[in-house]
Structure formats: C-alpha cells, structure tokens
Design a protein around this nucleic acid. Structure first.
Lengths: 196, 196, 196, 196
DNA sequence: CATGAATGAGCATTCATTCAT
DNA sequence: CATGAATGAATGCTCATTCAT
C-alpha cells in the first residue's frame, strides 16, 4: 500500500544498473560498441529496452558507466601498493603482480577498453579520463626503473609498458590458452637485467 | 566514343578498385568497420555507391580485398630476407628492421587489422587467413632466438612477439609522437642479452 | 498515523487534482498536446507519474478535465450578465468586456483551446462540448446586434465573432506586447457604426 | 547502360520532392506536426520512408521546405499588386482580394501555419522567416489605411489584421460551410467607413 | 493516497544493397 | 563502366501506461 522506502528503491536501482552494465561490458568487449544493439544488451541483462534509458542517457553513456566503475575498483587495488615503502626489486615484482591481477580479474573490461581505443569517435569522449590514467602508469613505471638503476629510465619504462600491453593483447586474444603465469615469471626474471 | 581496348578497361578497373580499397582501409582504420558507411567510402574514393558493388560483393568483402592486397606486398618483402643465409645476430636485426618497415610503410593497415581483431564477427571470417600468418611469424621468431642460444626459445619468442605487438600498439596510437626509431635501437640492444 | 477524515482526504485529492490540471494546461498550451509528456506534467505538478492516473484515466482525459473546469468558471461569469435586462448599447459593451475579461483571466486556457482546435484527433472527442458553446456565443452576438438595428444580424455577428477571435489570436501570440485594452476601446467605438 | 543525364536525375528528384512536400503539408495541417509520423507521410506520398531522408534532413526540415515553397508562390502574387499605382480604395479591395485568393488557393498551407504557430518548439526555428512576412503585411496594411485617411492608421491596420486572421481562422475550421465570399464583400463594405 | 521501476509498442532516422538507366 | 534514386529492415530512443509496494 505504502510506497517503497528510499532504501528499497535505491537497492532495486543498483541491482538493475549492475545487470545492465555487466551485459553491456561483455557485449561491447566481444562484438564492439557499434556492433552491439541496445536490444541485445536488454535481453542479456534480462530487462526491457526502456529500462536501460532509466539509468543511462544513451548507448555511449553506458561506456562511461563501465569505465567509471572499473576505475573505482582499480583505484582501490592501486592504493594498497602505492603507500608502502619498499625495496625496489620487491616493488617491481608487486607492480607486475598488480597489473596482472587487474587484468586477470576483469579481462573483459580490458578487452573492451583496448577495442574502444580503436574507435576514434568513442575514444574522443573518454580520452581525458583514460589519458590521465595512462600517464600516471607510465610515471609510476619510470619511477620504478629509475630506482632499479636504469640508465634511460623513460625508455626503459616505455619498453616495459609496451611489453605489458603486448602481453595483455595476446592474453586477451588467446585467453586460457595463453601461459600468462609463466609469462609473468619470465618477465620478472628479465627485469633483473635492468640497471646492470 | 571509340570502344576502349581491353587494356584500357582493365586499367580503369584497377584504378577504381585501388581507390575504393584505399578509402575503405583508411576509414575502417580510423572509424572501425561497423561505424563506416558505404556512402563514406564512395565519397572518399570519389566514386558512386553503386560502383563499389561492381568490384566487391559486400561491405565485408572489402575487408577481404584489403587483407589480400596487404599480404601480397608483405610476402614480397618477407621472401627477400628469408632466402639469405645469415649470421643469427644480423638476421635478428634484419627481422626487426623488416617488421618495423612493414608497419611504418602502412601503419593504417595495421591499425585496421588490430582494430578488426576485436570485432569477433568480422574476425571469424578472416581468422584462418590471419592465424596462419601469425603462426609463421612466431615460428620464425622461435627459430631466430634458438640460433641465438636462448634457453627457452618458445617463451623468448612469445616474449619478443608481445613486445613487438606492444610497440606497434603504442606507435599506432601516438603516431609521430612515438619515438619508434629510438625504440627499435633500444630493442636491438636488448636482444644482445638473449642467450647469455 | 491516525486515519484521515473524509474531509481531509477529499481536500488532499482536490489539491493534487488542481495541481495536475494546472500543470497540464500550461504545458499543453505552450508545447502542444502531443509534444507534452506525462513525465513533464508530473514534474511540473510536483507529483508522481502514477498519481496522475489516480485522477485521470489517460492523457486525453486531462484535456477533458481542463475543459470542464474552465467551462464551469466561464458559466458563472456568463450568467451574471445574461440575467440583467439592459440597454442594447450597454449590453454590447458589457459583452465585449466579458469576453476580454475571460481571456485576460486565463489566456493560457484559450491558447490551449485554440491550439487543440487544430489537432483533429483530439478535437473530435471534445467537439460536441465546444461546438455547443460556440453556437451559444454566436446566438448571443446575433441577438445583440439585432437589437442594435443591424440589417444583416447574422453576418454582422459572424463578422464580430471573427474580429474577436482574431484579436484573441494576436493577443495570445504577442502577450503583453499587444495593446489589448486599446484594442477593446477601438472595437467598442467601431460597434457604434452598427445599425447606422 | 549509360547513367541518367543530370537533367533526368533532376526531374526525378523534383517529382519525388514535390510528392513528399504535398503529403507532409496535408498531414501536418490536419493532424499537427507531432502527431504525424514519417511512415504516414511516406505512405501518402507513395514513397519509402528512407527516400524522404534523401531530400530532407529531418522531419523538421520538411516544415522548412513547405514554408519556403509557399513563400515563393506567395511572393509572385504579391509583386503583381505592389507595383501598380492605384486609387487607394481600389488598392484596398485588391489587397483584400489578394489575401483571400492566397488563402483559398492553398488553405491547407495556412491551416498548417496557424497550427504550427501554437507549437512553440517548431515555431522557434522558423520564427525569423515568418515574423518578417508578418511585419511586411502589417506595414502594407498601415500604409493602405493611412491613404484612406484613417485617423489612427496603426490601430486601424491592427484591427483589420485581426479581422482578416479571424475570418481565416473560421474559414479554416468550417471550410466550405463558411460564407467566405459573402464575408469578403461585407468586409469591403465595412472598409468604406474608414476615414469618415 | 502515493511512488517510480518496469514495460513494449512506436517513432525518427540510418544504411547496406538493388537496379533502371 | 558508372550513377544515384529507391527500398525497407534494423537501430537508438521515447513515452503512455501498469503495478508492486
């Protein structure tokens, strides 16, 4: 008889919103943004087409929602590492672990993101958001390799960055057939050469 | 008014065909396959929409045409290297040069290809064609590093492959702002460590 | 928590109903019926979408509600005049005043009504209601001008009627920039010619 | 075998364009802009939905097309009158005739226009176009009545303008049941009073 | 009495493809 | 060989209406 409480409403909203975001993410990642229809998302999320527009103002806005959410989660993991003062070799290993964990936890997100980075129309709208992140990461890497005694820290960091993205790329394509763990250890071993 | 000769007709055909392929490639690379319209291609190629269907049976078929053409060119360069018997260190440098040249000569093609590799619907149709190429490349790399005395040739090759693709990825995004040449030399220097 | 009395409930009902009608009227008048959404009405009225359907069975029914209410108010003013026995010149002036007052008191209503008269789908449902009113007005005017000694009372009445509607039309468009009062006096002066 | 000539294409285009404009005008006039669908227009025009967008960029653009076309036709008639030097009484009669002819020739257009003037969203986009016309008309009327010796030419012109619009309004509603010709003569007779 | 999440039919618009010339 | 008018299925998005609470 009486209307739902604010809390009930908010919970319902969050559940629907999550379902929609999850479905969008998966479809965008596998089919690409422009090849995914709202109807597909609605069906996969188990809601009506109309409901999607109760939570997101447009198809593009879904991308924004996905990125925002992933960044929040990513931020959390990041901070746990950053605060600690560490031996540089340990820090490098931890950073590598961190990146691999991030990717392994949510490979679909990274697939979507990489895919999106080739869609210039969409990219344009979210570039500021993403570039900042990118820059922070490169800065972090540069700092790390400098502490390892690299002679050309920036080059070394860019090299490492390309390597990580390359591994990510291959992992995203081959999925479980890719020896990600082995690659990680191989990579860690390689970093031992830096500064020598 | 006089009837054109067979050769003239064939030449006209080839020119139109090339214009269409070139326009398609550029648009697919920058906007993505599904976000590019036949009208855009026709306009950019300076031909009518109808003409495109004289040369290609569908939008997808354009992708096929692009890939085929690029493979032919790629093949040529490849063979010039393969045939020569070389000191492994020189061979590695040459292979690296070769890859970088390929990318620098036609970055748009590689951009389109990478972009396409995230469009599973399109990928599916051209996967066999591409996977074969991929496998050959990995085989070639494995062979190279083995001759350099690598302890784990396959891992080393995969590592190198990821690295190359990572650099490619970054180059495709940052274009002329990316220090590609410097990166190449840095990479060559790194390969000196292999086998030690 | 204590149960509301019948009167309280009724008062609440009436207030909500009025708010909804007021919001509808204004939006219909300015945006047109088909370009106004229930959501807009709900927002402007400060109620939920659902509540509107507690009082009105459909969007169209809102129009019915608006017209009914306006007719009731119009009726009241009308009767105060009709009953009095008057010198015809005074009666004409009073009738003109009456019409102008009606419009000035609720211009939005007249705007909506005129707008609606061009929406044949809506008009159809309320035509009987409106035509009756129209006819009564024309009859009243005919009677007046006949008492003024007009030679062609019906033509004169139609002429006057067109004039009044024309002035109304212009007033509704130009709002406060329109010299309505001046026009009224000008019109009254013109009526002095009738019957001469 | 050979493609159509420029002229053939242009003729085909004009025919299709006219069919679409005609259908749009009629539907907009009777059902209102927002209550008319592109499908209805396509069906009435005997073309596909898609074709409409080959000629007009949007539903709104159709309104623009209609207005432009009507203005061109209107302009022609206007000029034939304006140029002649005339006895003012004859000029008034001619102007009145002209307006009535315009309306009688294309009542649907005037219905649409009046209807549209209540759709503020659409009006906004075409107001500049229409206001200019309006102003020119009022100016013309003012000039006319001044030459007739009116004491308050502007008021007299506004009065006349309202009258004309009122008659138009009634005519548009009652169509053939409205004694338009009789009204015109009655109106002309009334103008004889001006300046006395 | 009151809320707003949810639905789905319907809308404006796009676009690959066809075909008459 | 070449054109572009024409089609219509499909898409993103809107909105009146319902209903559980």
């Amino acid at each position: 008889m009486s209307p739902r409480t604010k809390e009930q409403v908010e919970e319902i909203r969050q559940r629907s919103r999550q379902q929609i975001l999850k479905a969008s993410l998966e479809l965008f990642a596998h089919q690409g943004f422009h090849n995914t229809t709202i109807s597909q998302i609605a069906k996969k999320a188990g809601v009506s087409k109309g409901l999607i527009y109760n939570y997101f103002s447009s198809k593009e806005d879904l991308v924004g929602g996905i990125i925002e959410e992933a960044m929040e989660t990513g931020e959390e993991i990041m901070t746990t590492i950053k605060d600690q003062e560490l031996d540089p070799w340990v820090a490098v290993d931890q950073s590598i672990d961190h990146i691999f964990i991030l990717v392994q936890q949510n490979p679909v997100y990274w697939k979507m993101l990489t895919s999106l980075s080739f869609q210039e129309d969409i990219l344009m709208k979210f570039e500021p958001l993403l570039r900042k992140q990118e820059f922070k990461n490169l800065e972090h890497l540069t700092d790390l390799v400098r502490r390892l005694g690299a002679k050309k820290p920036l080059m070394e960091a860019m090299y490492l960055s390309a390597l990580l993205d390359g591994i990510l790329l291959h992992y995203l394509h081959f999925k479980d057939k890719y020896p990600l763990e082995e690659m990680k250890e191989f990579l860690k071993a390689k970093t031992r050469e830096i500064g020598k």
